[in-house]
Amino acid sequence: MSADSSGLKRPRYPMPDFVKTALDERGLMAAYRQRPAYQQNDYIGWINQAKRQETKEKRLLQMLDELEAGGVYMNMKHPASEKA
């Protein structure tokens, strides 16, 4: 684990290549980077902790859809990320 300036006190998960590729392909990297560090980290940890590949893919799609829609984080309202 490397030091970072995010202020997170828990372990910081590195972004897997398949997540980076999906964000780039959907044009959502900027939306991802605009989220707070804890949300970025939670999404990555949540996706990676799935045991089955199908579950990882389902979680990845949920993250991508939430980033695209804005205003949602882990199926909860997130007004700070709402799109105009």
Rank of each mutant, 00 (worst) to 15 (best):
L23Q: 03
L23H: 03
L23P: 01
D24C: 11
D24M: 14
D24H: 15
D24K: 15
D24R: 15
D24Q: 15
E25F: 05
E25A: 14
E25Y: 05
R26W: 03
R26I: 01
G27D: 01
G27I: 04
G27V: 06
G27S: 08
L28W: 09
L28N: 08
L28I: 07
L28V: 07
M29G: 04
M29N: 11
M29L: 13
A30G: 10
A30F: 08
A30V: 10
A30M: 09
A31E: 10
A31T: 02
A31L: 05
A31M: 05
Y32A: 03
Y32V: 01
Y32L: 03
Y32C: 03
R33M: 14
R33S: 14
R33H: 13
Q34G: 10
Q34R: 10
Q34K: 10
Q34L: 08
Q34S: 12
R35I: 00
R35V: 02
R35W: 08
R35P: 10
R35L: 12
P36H: 12
P36R: 15
A37L: 08
A37K: 14
A37H: 13
A37S: 14
A37M: 08
A37V: 02
A37W: 11
Y38F: 14
Q39L: 13
Q39K: 15
Q39I: 09
Q39T: 08
Q39D: 09
Q39M: 13
Q40P: 08
Q40V: 06
Q40N: 12
Q40L: 09
Q40M: 11
N41V: 08
N41M: 10
N41Y: 06
N41P: 04
D42R: 15
D42F: 13
D42Y: 14
D42H: 14
Y43N: 02
Y43A: 04
Y43W: 06
Y43R: 01
Y43S: 03
Y43L: 03
I44T: 12
I44L: 15
I44A: 09
G45R: 15
G45S: 12
G45L: 12
G45I: 12
W46N: 05
W46F: 07
W46A: 04
W46G: 01
I47L: 06
I47D: 02
N48V: 00
N48Y: 06
N48E: 13
N48T: 07
Q49L: 07
Q49R: 12
Q49H: 10
Q49A: 08
Q49E: 14
A50G: 06
A50L: 07
A50N: 07
A50Y: 06
K51C: 05
K51H: 11
K51F: 10
K51R: 10
K51I: 07
K51V: 09
K51M: 09
K51A: 10
R52M: 10
R52K: 12
R52Y: 10
R52C: 03
Q53M: 09
E54C: 00
E54L: 03
E54G: 00
E54H: 00
E54N: 05
T55G: 02
T55K: 01
T55I: 04
T55H: 02
T55L: 03
T55R: 04
K56P: 00
E57S: 00
E57K: 00
E57G: 00
E57N: 00
E57Q: 08
E57V: 07
K58N: 01
K58I: 04
K58G: 00
K58F: 04
